[in-house]
Design a protein around this nucleic acid. Structure first.
Lengths: 144, 144
DNA sequence: GCCTATAATGAGAATCATTATCAACCAGCG
DNA sequence: CGCTGGTTGATAATGATTCTCATTATAGGC
């Protein structure tokens, strides 16, 4: 599922930043897995190719450009994954034991219901709704 | 909406811990507001009556006993709210600007759909599902 | 009411993820 | 070639959270 790098390149160009080797590394690592990764996990996933401090900065740049999205988990750890316009809309299974996150998709009819609800909230006066995500807590296979 | 302290007292007793003044303070502060609060916010909400380090410990104890539940937000900040069996099932509006969280309830039919979905996931082999929460991102009235 | 074992507290140190800093580096361009 | 501005990496700084430990409060037994 190699996301056309062109789209990312364009987006970064619009943001006025370069698509350097280090940034490509991070993006490709994020594309390899099917759930969000933290800066430290990314550092490992890339075999230490990109230093931790650069991973953080790269993630900030990519988030700013709308290429990746953050997911806040237990222990104050923030994990990132490819933005929805690149990876498709999905939801999360979150392990309450180890914090691992797995992506899932909802059956179409339910998703439609959710979209409608979020739309209604948007219309409400006190909150301007954007995206949404269903977070299901539980225990993953390893922590069972 | 003063939750009968009795229930909390019992739960804590089962967990083998005391329901002390400091812990009552924290619980009553959490009951006063309608969204999750961080340790620092709780400390302020109580006018400094309970020192920050005690707030953290108290929250850990209450979470362990199942009286409160954590909500992980931006900037590595964890906010707590009364557990669902005490406060009722609900979902969250999360401000992407300031991180504030507001509670909402879903229309019954949609909630039923969600329950069914989560039940199905539970049946799946790789993940043992527990609770769930719909997180809607957006901008709150103040950050609009 | 008084004592004692044990849980709980408070102040500060320690930890860990994240962010900021800054000098060295690299790409494109005249 | 040498300049200019974005980029990098090592390290220091920050901020939330956790740990430590001496002190204090509490529930029972007397």
């Amino acid at each position: 599922m190699p996301v056309p790098d062109r789209q990312i390149e364009e987006r970064l160009a619009e943001a006025g930043v370069r698509y350097t080797a280090g940034r490509r590394h991070v993006v490709s690592a994020l594309e390899r897995v099917d759930g969000p990764l933290s800066a430290a996990e990314l550092h490992l996933e890339m075999g230490g190719a990109v230093p931790v401090s650069s991973v953080y900065r790269t993630l900030a740049v990519l988030e700013e450009a709308g290429v990746v999205e953050p997911h806040h988990g237990a222990r104050g750890i923030t994990r990132y994954e490819m933005a929805e316009w690149l990876a498709g809309h999905h939801h999360h299974l979150v392990c309450i034991e180890c914090g691992a996150v797995e992506d899932i998709e909802l059956p179409e009819p339910l998703e439609v219901e959710l979209e409608r609800l979020v739309g209604q909230l948007s219309a409400s006066a006190s909150f301007s709704a954007g995206g949404h995500s269903l977070e299901v807590d539980g225990r993953c296979a390893r922590c069972r």
